Amino acid sequence: NQASVVANTLIPINTALTLVMMRSEVVTPVGIPAEDIPRLVSMTVNRAVPLGTTLMPDMVKGYA
């Protein structure tokens, strides 16, 4: 099973992502692959992402 990116904290809308905000976890449904974490750093989220939420491609500006 592939690990996905999961919010390690509440990420407010329009926040630039940092490494400490994200962790990898095997979850269903599958979200952004964990190997993309380095690429996500400094990208911003377009909605509030609660703790434990899987990051989906449409949640990160410029990812999809």
Rank of each mutant, 00 (worst) to 15 (best):
K61M: 13
D58P: 06
S24F: 07
V49T: 04
T44Q: 15
A16C: 07
P29K: 05
S42W: 07
M21S: 12
V5Q: 01
T53N: 13
R47F: 15
T54V: 14
V5C: 04
A3H: 14
A16G: 13
R23P: 02
T44V: 12
T44M: 11
N46G: 07
M43W: 06
I32Q: 00
A34V: 10
L40D: 00
T54F: 02
P33R: 11
S4F: 02
T9M: 13
T9Y: 10
I13H: 12
M43T: 05
A16Q: 15
L17E: 02
R39S: 10
D58K: 09
A16F: 13
P12C: 06
M43N: 05
T44Y: 11
L10P: 15
T53K: 08
A3F: 10
V45A: 03
G62I: 03
Y63L: 07
P57Q: 08
T18S: 09
N8G: 08
V49W: 03
I32K: 00
T15A: 08
P50K: 12
I13L: 12
M22Q: 01
M21Y: 06
A34W: 06
A7I: 04
S4W: 03
M43Y: 07
I37W: 03
N14L: 06
P29A: 04
V41F: 05
M43S: 04
Y63S: 05
D36K: 06
V41M: 08
V41L: 12
R23C: 04
L40H: 00
I11R: 00
M56V: 13
M59N: 05
S42E: 08
V6Y: 00
A3Y: 09
M21I: 03
T44W: 11
N1A: 15
L51K: 09
M21A: 05
T15P: 02
D58I: 12
V45H: 01
I11G: 00
A34R: 05
V6P: 01
V49Y: 02
A64V: 11
L51E: 12
T28I: 09
A3W: 05
P38C: 06
M21F: 04
T18L: 08
K61R: 14
V45W: 00
I11K: 00
L51R: 10
T18N: 07
V30M: 13
I37Q: 05
T28K: 04
N1C: 05
T18W: 03
A34H: 06
I11F: 02
S4R: 00
P29S: 07
V5T: 10
T9R: 12
L55S: 00
V41T: 11
A34T: 07
M21K: 04
R47H: 15
E25K: 05
M43C: 09
P50D: 15
T54A: 06
P50T: 10
N14Y: 14
N14P: 00
T15I: 06
L10G: 11
D58G: 08
E25N: 08
E25Q: 10
A16K: 10
G62N: 12
P29I: 06
P50M: 07
N14F: 10
M56N: 08
A64K: 15
R39E: 04
V49P: 02
A48D: 15
Q2R: 04
G31W: 03
T9H: 15
L17D: 02
P57H: 11
L40I: 13
A16T: 15
P38M: 07
G31E: 01
A7T: 10
L55C: 01
L51W: 11
M56Q: 15
P57G: 07
D36I: 05
N8H: 08
P33A: 10
Y63N: 03
V27C: 05
V41P: 02
N8R: 09
T44C: 10
N46M: 14
Y63K: 03
D36E: 12
M56S: 08
I11Y: 00
L55T: 02
A3R: 04
M22Y: 02
V5I: 14
E35S: 10
S4H: 00
G52P: 00
A64C: 13
